[in-house]
Design a protein around this nucleic acid. Sequence first.
RNA 1: GCUGAAGUGGUGGAAUUGGUAGACACGUUGGACUUAAAAUCCAAUGUCCAUUAGGACGUACGGGUUCAAGUCCCGUCUUCAGUACCA
Length: 1016
Amino acid sequence: MQYDFNQIEKKWQDYWAKNQTFKAVNNSDKPKYYILDMFPYPSGAGLHVGHPLGYIASDIYARYKRHKGFNVLHPQGYDSFGLPAEQYAIQTGQHPAVTTEENIKTYRRQLDQIGFSFDWSREVRTSDPQYYKWTQWIFIQLFESYFCKDSNMAKPISELIAVFEAEGNLKINAECDDNIEPFTAENWNSYSSKQQQEILLKYRLTYLAETEVNWCPALGTVLANDEIVNGVSERGGHPVVRKKMTQWSMRISAYAERLLQGLDTIDWTDSLKESQRNWIGKSVGASVIFNVIPTERSDEKSHKIDVFTTRPDTIFGVSFMTLAPEHDLVSKITTPEQKAEVEAYIEKTAKRSERDRMADVKTISGVFTGSYAEHPFTKEPVPIWIGDYVLASYGTGAVMSVPCGDQRDYDFAKHFNIPIPNIFEGVDISEEAYGSKENVKITNSDFLNGMNMKKATKRAIYELEQLGQGEGKTNYRLRDAVFSRQRYWGEPFPVYYVNGMPQMIDAKHLPLTLPEVEKYLPTEEGEPPLGRADVWAWDTNTNQVVSNELVFPTELSDEESHNGIYPLELNTMPGWAGSSWYFFRYMEEKANRDDAFATEDALKYWENVDLYIGGSEHATGHLLYSRFWVKFMKDRGFVNVEEPFKKLINQGMILGTSAYAYVLKRSAEMPESYIQKDFDKFQRAKEFLGDCVKSFIISKELKNKIIHGTANQKDLVEILKFDNWFNSQTKQKELKIYLEEVKAEDIRRIPIPVEFVNSSNEIDFNSYHKWNPEYNSAEILSSIADREVEKMSKSKYNVVNPDDIVADYGADSLRLYEMFLGPLEQYKPWNTAGITGVHSFLKKLWKLYADDNGLKVNDAETTKDSLKTLHKTIKKVEEDIENFSFNTSVSTFMIAVNELTAQKCTSKEILEPLLVLISPYAPHIAEELWSQLGNAESISTAPFPKFEEKYLVESSKEYPISFNGKMRFTMELPLDLSKDEIEAAVMANEKTQNQLQGRTPKKVIVVPGKIVNIVG
RNA sequence: GCUGAAGUGGUGGAAUUGGUAGACACGUUGGACUUAAAAUCCAAUGUCCAUUAGGACGUACGGGUUCAAGUCCCGUCUUCAGUACCA
């Protein structure tokens, strides 16, 4: 009986599918457990070995939970709207739905052969109209809601309208746009419908607003910040301009405080919570209004500068103000004398990206506007500057500068010779600002003198309020999220426009499906791709999508004479729309999904996700938006939970181990990109060529030490050793001289596909030359590959496809190896060579149960050793899984199998439970052996073995005997000895006397069961 | 700049509360089997010194606490990720 993994794995995957082994049920006596992976975007490239890492971990946990008696929901689906399919459509004209369908098929095939215990009957796809119908529905609910600050929750907009009708907006405490004019009930009732709609938009949780975007006219599209490099588009290098566009926004800022507070209730990693906290960016302080002093020549009335500060206690330390160069007031308050300089500065700043402004902290720049503001208390004039260290996008885009208390203000003041008044008692500020909030008293500050920060802050706010020039304020960095995309392959908005005002399509007519277009590009006028659709208007008479031609031209129509056919929204929703609620959809079985996104019963039963596994790159995107939508849905009574994901684990990325060879050929026509211009890499290349067997490279660290002059004697010895080694070998010397003459452009570094490099880093040139004959005549080609760890990518030829691994070693080997690589959350390199280790482990495991003559397992008596091995393993594996330390349990299995093999164990009593332990990790081999042992049911139904301490109790211990903390030898002693008895036994040992060489120990430390340390 | 994570053999990594550093694998070397190769099995394998016995050094670097430090404390460096000069 051989371990035929291909046959076994196929057999059990078919069995699971046929018997629906992993189908979850929505009612059960067992406790529920919902374990979810971040669903994948089905890209055209298919899976590489990095993708399944998180799925394997969650699958192990899901299978483990089933053994532990839980009703487990472990679904999978596809985030199938997205840019790559659209780009492919633009290039090839193929409908994104078609390519997406193909990609999903590939993904499914690849996932299936890894043996996941997914309940595929609950699959979701965000691009499926039956799914996005409900995404559109949620959008409508957001539109029909506002955020009540009194009750701190979302409420139906109808309630707000009722208030407006009864008392206007004077008393209402609701989250809204900044530019709200107060109105009475009378005003409201006299407004036209359009005016009322405009006002309501300012309160709705999703609303239309003018937003600044990075517009690239050449591409006809909006670009993300990281798609722009040096002011031009990353692809194509086209110019990018800032442009205002009307877009849908989500009022996520209303939920800032709840999103922050909620973090304390969920079990996520501290680093992840920290990045969300930073993103929300709460700061408590005050807003202060400074009146600009009008000059004779400046225009009209006085302007007001609103600043936000976290340190109102330092208000008497203000010696200047700084506005962001983009600040609206700049053009209004700049004096004619300063105008030229200010404008030049603004132009200069506009070219710098925010990243640029941020990275460069050394350069201090700014310009005086010529104007002054009046200090609210002292009434002294305060000069107003502009400086690019103040960002327009945060707070009010203006700062009251307190150089004695803030280092950036201090540097700015020093640079421009602005006075630095000291308001801290007994603090020296001649060298730097005093940023600490603790242990200091305020001075030179009128009514704040002698107070500490806390007290002074309170008092300053009180005094500002008395003057009407400020108030206590909490500021959040979190901005409302733009929700429109100028793309084709996304959810259409269920929105049509009457007189320019957005109207929702009634939920019962959803889904509003994507129209057909002949091209997936923006229109020539710069409209989104949906602008190309011919049939894209809403007929309110029939509630159907009809031809655009039926829409009355706006100039001819007013509301009365309209024919009831209106243009539909041309934008689509962003990628995070569908992913913000998909975890609820899985809760419902497909049969019941027509009338609700999930039934109440299903939502009540599954509540929220118990364990969520995915990449940390979603920390502030998906994971924040989902929390926002769930809170909203809770407020409106659609779901019962406040948070979507109770526990969350980030899996680290698996990196590729690229291989490079160095080629020396002066006249070769080789791609420019292979030339090593980087000095370090050039040196490395020379060393590789100089000695293809072993390369000694001075580490980067050592180089840095030499540069910084911090190398110690030991480091210098290292360097000398390297030189000696290189010089002592004549052949090397010749080669070295030869290489000395070599110019950087003579050495090429060529990527070698990883499949042509063996585990000893030797390059298989036969295969390589067949694949690429270009370098057949190269003068020298390093025969050993230089390895580099980088992201897996096609262009680096380091992608490893799981299909190949499964074909060569089997899914169980792949699963074990992915776990064996290292801790789940860590970034780690993939190296296929190492898989032989886990593969031969599986073979050894098989041999424990079966040999050429068939099954070896029998009813033999258990031995003490075997029981000990088994229970040690149970204990460790259980602890490991609970701690998500999957790498260490693989080692534990190896140790167990090595031990049981050495013990020649054949006892069913030992070997049967061992299979259950291994089955979450290597389910196929476990199922096969389990059924060979005569079990009719799938191993997934078996309970997890129970650990029993009694098998691990020892009677003696191999004590390490240390002298001054250094272990010298070990001594086997019974565990029931007292401290004194242990000491006596150790002192009587001949080796102890050898170590002491006649000295009398000063002290003997005995920790029973642990260690003996002899001092002296 | 700030925030977070990390730094252990040739490589991936282990050491869960301070108690035998390097488990388990990969790789390497030697051996067995074989006409040969593959597969499999056995042995060695942190570095240095020593014929052996054994010894010295060793967890990024420099200090400290302790009978005992990879683990705790202080300082420094490096790498990776994120970022918003956050007033």
